[in-house]
């Protein structure tokens, strides 16, 4: 069955587990393997954590929209925060604006664990990351 959900949550680290576990529950009807579920949870965690860590100086929110068509998941995770100046640079492995405590591997992990990752961002407006993954096809 095609399906969708939308949710909006405060951009707080407390919500990271809630967000990734919600997505995992949403794709259960597609009979994902344990590995596929872990990949999805990790990629969702990366995108949500970026909203929590990078998007806002103060409070803000994260919007998650997910759709299932056939065996495909489409998930968009977005914020209304400060945006990314140079998206190509941000995607590079090891690039981080976060100093010594961040590895700069978030986007690389999303790209490795999902079928596609699309980033749109504008300064002062926010960032939106859309990822797709198909399940049950090897």
């Amino acid at each position: 069955m095609d399906n969708y959900f939308k949710m909006q949550i405060p951009a707080k680290s407390e919500n990271e587990a809630f967000a990734r576990n919600t997505l995992a529950a949403f794709v259960l009807p597609l009979s994902p393997t344990v590995e596929e579920l872990n990949d999805l949870k990790t990629a969702v965690s990366e995108a949500v954590t970026n909203c929590v860590v990078h998007a806002y100086d103060g409070d803000g929110s994260v919007a998650i929209v997910a759709e299932i068509h056939d065996n495909m998941l489409f998930v968009t995770i977005s914020d209304n925060g400060k945006g990314i100046e140079d998206v190509d640079k941000a995607r590079e492995p090891m690039y981080t604006s976060g100093g010594d405590e961040r590895s700069g591997m978030g986007f690389t992990i999303m790209e490795t664990f999902m079928d596609s990752v699309e980033i749109t961002s504008s300064l002062g407006q926010g960032t939106s990351v859309t990822m797709t993954k198909s399940f049950g096809v090897c």
Partner: peptide
């Protein structure tokens, strides 16, 4: 049970 890049940051940060 789960690790994401924040865990990598923890490792790389301590490594340095």
């Amino acid at each position: 049970s789960f690790v994401d890049s924040t865990g990598l940051g923890l490792i790389f940060g301590r490594y340095k």
